[in-house]
Nucleic acid binder design. Sequence first.
DNA 1: TCATAGTTTAGAATTATTCTAAATTGAGTT
DNA 2: AACTCAATTTAGAATAATTCTAAACTATGA
Lengths: 141, 141
Amino acid sequence: MVKSARDSVADQATLRLRQHGLRPTRQRVELAGILFRDCDRHVTAESLHDEVSGAGVKVSLATVYNTLHQFTEAGLLRQVIVDASRCYFDTNTGNHQHFFVEKEGLLIDIPGEAIEVAGVPAPPDGLSVDRVDVVVRVRRG
Amino acid sequence: MVKSARDSVADQATLRLRQHGLRPTRQRVELAGILFRDCDRHVTAESLHDEVSGAGVKVSLATVYNTLHQFTEAGLLRQVIVDASRCYFDTNTGNHQHFFVEKEGLLIDIPGEAIEVAGVPAPPDGLSVDRVDVVVRVRRG
DNA sequence: TCATAGTTTAGAATTATTCTAAATTGAGTT
DNA sequence: AACTCAATTTAGAATAATTCTAAACTATGA
């Protein structure tokens, strides 16, 4: 029996999970496989659940939520807040910003080096800057 | 009977509502009075409902939601998206950005002239920029 | 005063998310 | 391979913010 491409994705995922102190369960390996096989993905819990279910894998929605949060804690994902009603997770954890097509719920990365935010005043006393998020809201047409 | 300060706030609110094609109902006048009496306020539906209720005025939460959206449509308010679970409304509709203290749900305005965002790439084909939002996430300490 | 379209409201419905407690499982022992 | 046990998964209930619905109310112009 030869190793399939799928096995290699799973192996990569398993390794990555172990490196981040996460036990590589079947569910986490499947989700990590989907999330990190390709680059720069933006998912919601629902969209990821649909995707993994569509691939014939049985993972509960609760586990998708748990896993997204654990991956975020572990630094494998980053949360993106652009919509009051949905929470997005981004596989790109580096310095970058986003275009957001509200109507379609579509996020597009903007390289961090491209954008520069100048003139941010010092925050009021007792506060320190955590990070600066830029959302470029765009629409068709 | 002399005119009270409260009446004058109500008169201003009434005028403003008429100017924007909104019928000045008791509820809308009360809410507009609270929102626009002072400058630069940031509210959620819940916080505004608490505030108006606390002032002894009876307005349903549904009406607060309706009113916030109508005011936004009319250009009297602007929505601010900084939190995945709550929706904020800002009485400052001009060009400006925000500090956000996540733990406290606190928004602080940054004048639009202060901040400059440079290097935003052209959006992908078929998309045009609606606006650019900057959120400076800050924390105590 | 009347008519009526616009508005308000209580409560039900919806949506995204989190919680709970019981069942299952991964991984290190024996 | 069987055993143990803490970590994980899960179905379904619970929560929270928001929206919807349909009936009651009200501002306004005739």
